[in-house]
């Protein structure tokens, strides 16, 4: 066991981990931050996406020890300071961008990373960026729409209901 220390959603956190402890496992099992989900074991579904030093990564495909000293952001830290939904989260609710909610944390974290890199993405840029985030419920329509809306684009022409 080795000690790791990292900042999670702005708060310094320490824990004892094995070499094989994944960042996702550290979050879920050790810190009881269960918003980050695990939907596959081949690094494809993206339910586990968090940000490490500002970059979207799959927390199921990174060891906790590798996050030593890092700044980690998870879904639990995304809401506004007053607890209200942030712009992306609010757009997901406004445009019905989630159903069962399981892929949603990863979707929101990927969307946040996308909009940081590309503040006004086109539809095809959004779709391309979501290559590593699988949703089985929504057919992606409302996710793509929500992300475009969150970027401040007018989505009223996109079929609503």
């Amino acid at each position: 066991m080795t000690k790791v220390t990292m900042k999670i959603n702005g708060k310094e956190v320490s824990g004892e981990v094995e070499g094989r402890t994944l960042l996702a496992t550290f979050l879920r099992e050790d810190l009881h931050m269960t918003g980050t989900h695990i939907g596959c074991d081949t690094s494809q579904c993206g339910a586990c996406v968090v940000h490490v030093n500002g970059k979207a990564v799959k927390s199921c495909t990174m060891f906790a020890a590798e996050a030593e000293g890092a700044d980690v952001a998870t879904i639990e830290g995304q809401a506004n300071a007053d607890g209200s939904l942030n712009v992306i989260q609010q757009a997901f609710q406004d445009h019905h961008g989630l159903q069962c909610g399981f892929c949603t944390p990863g979707m929101v974290m990927s969307a946040a990373a996308l909009l940081k890199e590309n503040p006004k993405p086109t539809e095809s840029e959004v779709r391309a960026y979501l290559e590593g985030n699988i949703c089985r419920c929504t057919g992606y329509h409302n996710i793509v729409k929500a992300i475009m809306a969150a970027s401040g684009q007018d989505v009223s022409a996109i079929a609503a209901e």
Binding site: R28, E29, H32, M33, T34, G35, T36, H37, I38, T74, I75, E76, Q78, A79, L85, Q89, F92, Q93, D94, H96, L98, C100, G101, F102, T104, P105, V108, E161
Partner: peptide, 23 residues
């Protein structure tokens, strides 16, 4: 009415309670 989903708030903030979250 296209009422917005109330359950979304917990899912969007990482507060859903799925079976694997139970320990």
């Amino acid at each position: 009415a296209s009422t917005k989903r109330r359950e979304d708030v917990r899912f969007l903030t990482g507060n859903g309670k799925y079976t694997d979250d139970i320990n």
